[in-house]
Structures are given as structure tokens and as C-alpha cells.
Amino acid sequence: METLERIIASHSFVQGLEEKYIELIVGCAANVRFEPEQFVCREGEEADNFFLIRHGKIALEIFMPERGATVIETLGENEILGWSWFFPPYRWHFDAKAIELTRAIAFDGKCLRRKCEENHDLGYELAKRFAAMLMERLQATRLRLLDLFHSKGAKLDYWGLT
């Protein structure tokens, strides 16, 4: 059987992380699974976890009274979910819902924060990985701000063709 440590080590998020650090964080980790439609977390709740997704698909959603639930982004294999655990006030900002059967490693945020405070080298290693992920997500979000595929509103009547 695969040990939790081996599973963690195989996730791209911890690529290159020294074994001693993996040994340190494995104590905060647990295997989890989410059924389709099962919520992983809800906006406003305490963010005491983050997840290394092993496979499956999770949608980050936001609910708008007039439009209903809207998917902001989907996350899948080898991606991670959750950074609210790292920063006060440790609250989830979006809903996260599995849309396929999803397996992940969940980390206890409090436990990890404590270990990072005790061992800043570990903290730095994790912070670097979070920063890289934040950059990628921010760049992708900026691209989407451009709304590249939006039709510039070519109007039929403008051309007298209705």
C-alpha cells in the first residue's frame, strides 16, 4: 500500500522538496475524497485546510442572488485548492464543490502554520510554492479579464441588415 508520505511526494506541488520537510508535514496530512456535488468548503467558513488534488475536479464557485452559482475556475489533478488558511482571518472566500469524484490530501492549516513558524526553512519552501501558484493563477485571471472571445457587439441594425 502506498504510504501517505509517498502520495504527497508524488504531487507536483512538493516537487523538489527535501524529504525531511515532507516528513515534517506528513503529520498534518490526511487522505480525503469528495463525491460529485459534495462541497469541499463554503464561503465564509473557517479555512482550516488546504488540499493537494490527486485526481478529479473541483469547481470554485461564487453564488450571486440574481444569477445563481457561477464557476470561477476549476481545479484538477496536481493542482492545489486553498490559500486562505495561510493568511488571517483564515476564512474561505469562495465555495468549492467537487464536480467529479475527487481524491486529495488535506492538510490541517493550523498544524502547518505552527510547523512553518517553528521551522522557517520549511515555511520559505512552502511560501515559494504558494507564490508561484498565485502568480500563475493571477496571470490566468488577468488574461480572462480581457474577455478575449467576447464579440464586440456587432449590431445587425447598425449595418441595416435586420
Partner: peptide
Amino acid sequence: VTVDRAAGDWKGNTGVVTTLISK
């Protein structure tokens, strides 16, 4: 396939096309 935006019942990917490269 990925889309920029979707209603809650969309089961596919949401995000820009570049995020698909690593998938």
C-alpha cells in the same frame, strides 16, 4: 475544453486555455 465563465451546472473546465497545457 475550458471556458472563461460558466453557470454552476457546467461540469467541464473553467479557466484560460493555457491552464490546459499542463493537463
